[in-house]
């Protein structure tokens, strides 16, 4: 019996490790289309393609030589940190830089989908970026509470939005479908983490420090200028 004991211990640890790893993986896996899908019996009212054209969240001219595209999650702390960096880059590069934001709410963030839907609902009233900035600015506050709807409504009010419309939109199937479609787009493009950046369609690797982002933009600008 003692002869087999060490092997039994090793096998037991292997099984427990794989089991716990698999459970953690399932628990942390990002929100899937089925998880974020509207309840059974309700239907999405807007096709993804038309939403895509109508509500691409972009700042800067469409003719800008460099497009910095971010897949972000409003409850992700590094996304909030990098948001300030992007603001600074936009000021520095002016019309040479276009910034696009896409929703990629992660499942391990309890309010990420609600926040994404709040931003999209504000976007329907033409204030996506204001809500985007506000959600990141007060991330540390709302991410800790159990019911965020009051906070988001207060933000909408402070931005001068029609609060009743905002409340309805932030729970609508159309907005939910938009968030899902952007998440699916991210998955199809290999996005796993937030923030994930693409510069002129190419995924940016490495650390997202201000220096690295600036260097990547400079490289993209140099590439556009060279014959």
């Amino acid at each position: 019996m003692k002869r087999y004991l060490p092997f039994a211990i090793i096998v037991a640890v292997a099984v427990v490790t794989i089991g716990v790893g698999a459970m953690l993986y399932r628990a942390k896996m990002r929100v899937s289309p089925s998880a974020a899908a509207p309840p059974a019996g309700t239907a999405s009212t807007a096709p993804a393609d038309s939403q895509e054209k109508e509500s691409l969240h972009a700042r800067g001219p469409a003719t800008a030589p460099v497009t910095l595209e971010e897949f972000g999650d409003f409850q992700c702390p590094p996304c909030a940190t990098v948001s300030g960096v992007i603001d600074k880059l936009e000021k520095d590069y002016g019309p040479r830089l276009r910034v696009i934001f896409r929703e990629f709410p992660l499942a391990m963030h309890s309010h990420a989908v609600e926040a994404a839907m709040a931003a999209e609902a504000a976007g329907l009233q033409g204030h996506f970026w204001e809500m985007h900035d506000m959600l990141y600015q007060y991330q540390a506050v709302w991410s800790k509470v159990s019911d965020v709807s009051h906070f988001f409504s207060a933000y909408a009010e402070s931005l001068g939005l029609d609060v009743e419309r905002f409340k309805a939109d932030s729970q609508s199937d159309a907005v939910r479908a938009r968030v899902i479609s952007e998440g699916d787009l991210g998955v199809s493009r290999g996005v796993k983490n937030t923030p994930t950046f693409f510069i002129n369609g190419t995924q940016l690797r490495g650390a997202f420090t201000p220096e690295n982002l600036r260097a990547a933009i400079d490289a993209a600008l140099a590439g556009k200028q060279s014959p």
């Binding site: 993986y25 942390k28 990002r30 590094p78 909030a80 992660l106 963030h109 996005v191 796993k192 983490n193």
Partner: peptide, 12 residues
């Protein structure tokens, strides 16, 4: 594998 950044807290 899951893209979880929660391990990092607010550290970019």
């Amino acid at each position: 594998l899951t893209g979880d950044d929660a391990v990092c807290g607010s550290s970019a």
